[in-house]
Design a protein around this nucleic acid. Structure first.
Lengths: 352, 352
DNA sequence: CATCTTGTTGCATACATATGCAATACCAGG
DNA sequence: CCTGGTATTGCATATGTATGCAACAAGATG
């Protein structure tokens, strides 16, 4: 077996001729210890290769400085971007990131039950639904939960989302302004709050403006499903002239199908619009019009929430972050975009 | 302040009328305890909402069941795929994944110094170089290191890589078989072992076959740098008719530039070949010929190594995994691919 | 010089669990 | 009934660090 022997504070204490308490204080900023004994201890520690055991420290503090992060489908570049930013932001905040897989389905994985008992400072769920039993379990384990890109009715959990209502309305207005006649919607995962909000707002706005109800297909926030959905739409005799996909991943699948399987000139013969504004959307190969979800801000808000919840687990709140409609070549251009820009930001970025 | 009160084994013991030891045993598979007292304890534990504190358990075992994973640039889909598989595989193995950012530069981040002292079962570095000081530090902390997609001369660390020599040679042979006259190479990060091996093998094979030395530009495994590098190549009077990019991310950038900025018909007027065979390479928008690195196998090997190293930290080894040349539309096709397929696998997959 | 203050230090204990060892109970065989 | 063995259980201690408390020293103030 592997019996590792570690250097402990006692070893350092013996080497430096002090007590173990002194060693502890030497590594605690602001502790009551004289500068020169601290220096002596740090020297000895360095020589022995000592570092405080964070597990033992957490055991005493009752706080691990670890944040659990559950992520479902990393196929979506939006979450890759988020993970990238989140890992950096947590690191800067002195927090560790414990990653665990959470099937993209409605609820999280079994392993979360174990993870909860690491005395996590917080649990972040990236686009993963929170079942009521899990919510209850987190409450019992006294682990504050932050939903990222999801909301829930559960009152005790916090959330950070983009403004799906305004986003979907803005896209609807954009498509109407482009004089599109047959609009379609490719939906995300049924039961996800993002899809529910986007779909409801999109349909409601179109109805309110007197437009006919759009076609609708399920894309499950998945490339293969969105590819199939697009094929179904484009095979119809009354082929749509505009498709709003509930996220960019599906929109890119739709572009691929429209362009390479049906030979359509995307942006002229058919408009395709996505949601998230992932980095790939700006690539000339796609030039995808999309409503942005600002990952940096959403991550910043998430970390802010975590720091608050760490000290006061009851200070839950729901944060909504503004986005911007990024107009690019995949949707028919309009003379004066600001004409319908009454509620949100609109930008026509240069290609990278 | 936030003073969380947790249910401990003592509380359960009191409730169930047994000793704390019994509670511990009730949660230890195979421990010496009668079935009915175990049942009684589990009932009481469930009622109180008790779960063993993993931090305390780790403190005793001297083993945390946590694997540290350092990742640099998640912009490369190959690492996204890897992370996806790795998080799942570690979870299945009962191991936790502590993620930390490691700047894509040659060495890892400062926070790693702290992380090392979580008594990690292992440290995995995804395409991150291992500085000799860090290697030494890991040795002192008695944390076994597994390099993923990197090698090092350090004898005490393990590694899992694809076969860069064969891959680069196969690509060189493929381009020569396609009668390409002016071949170029866009290099990855200088100093990375992947680039070093691919570049050396590519250049060596071409020279050995009597072909002129290829043009060479730096792409740093980065989209922006590769975009600029491609522009430099395509602006030359003696524009190359084939480019081998040291990974797919750069190859896709090269395709974007060639097609959208220079109006070239990729696959006919110019061949572009990548490395990694990321999922995106199969998209019709790119249809990128690429040498695969089988992430599933590489991850499986990584987890296998971790399990071995957990019990015997000295059992380090270097694993090389076979790949396959995936022939797609971005490179000029050849009548008989197997003519030059003397050393490796070659496939002509259908588009997804 | 006595007293008080301030700054350091060590002692003892707590955090939550795992486990070697001894004690106990129980059952079968003689 | 006694003995030996087995199965269960509790006691005591260990893991490595943080911290309240008391002790102590040194300097300041009267």
């Amino acid at each position: 077996m592997n019996d590792r022997i570690f250097v402990t504070a006692h070893d350092v204490a013996r080497a430096a001729g002090v007590s173990q308490s002194a060693v502890s204080r030497a590594f605690t900023p602001g502790a009551s210890i004289s500068p020169d004994t601290r220096a002596r201890i740090l020297t000895a520690a360095d020589q022995l290769g000592y570092r405080p055991n964070l597990l033992a420290r957490s055991l005493i503090n009752g706080r691990s400085n670890i944040v659990g992060v559950g992520v479902g489908n990393l196929a979506n570049p939006f979450f890759v971007e988020t993970m990238q930013l989140l890992s950096r932001a947590l690191d800067d905040a002195g927090l560790r990131l414990l990653l665990f897989p959470a099937d993209s389905g409605a609820t999280a994985e079994p392993s979360i039950h174990e993870i909860l008992h690491y005395r996590l400072d917080a649990l972040v769920l990236l686009s993963v639904g929170l079942s009521s039993t899990l919510a209850e379990e987190c409450r019992r384990a006294q682990v504050p939960v932050v939903l990222y890109n999801r909301t829930t009715l559960d009152d005790a959990t916090s959330s950070v989302i983009g403004d799906n209502q305004i986003g979907a309305r803005t896209i609807a207005a954009h498509l109407l302004a482009g004089r599109h006649q047959r609009i379609a919607y490719i939906a995300g995962t049924a039961g996800s709050s993002t899809n529910a909000q986007r779909e409801a707002a999109f349909f409601a706005y179109l109805a309110q403006q007197g437009a006919p109800a759009p076609l609708r297909e399920d894309g499950h926030y998945d490339i293969a499903a969105a590819t199939a959905a697009t094929r179904r739409l484009l095979t119809r005799p009354d082929r749509p002239d505009a498709i709003f996909c509930a996220n960019d991943l599906m929109a890119i699948a739709a572009i691929n199908v429209a362009r390479h399987e049906y030979g359509l000139d995307v942006g002229r013969e058919i408009s395709i619009v996505g949601y998230d504004d992932v980095p790939m959307a700006a690539w000339p190969a796609f030039s995808l019009t999309s409503y942005s979800q600002p990952a940096e801000q959403m991550v910043a808000q998430t970390v802010r929430l975590i720091r608050i919840l760490r000290d006061d687990p009851d200070a839950h709140q729901d944060v909504i972050v503004d986005g911007t409609l990024m107009l690019r070549g995949s949707s028919r251009s309009v003379a004066n975009p600001s004409a319908y820009a009454t509620t949100t930001n609109i930008a026509t970025p240069r290609p990278d």
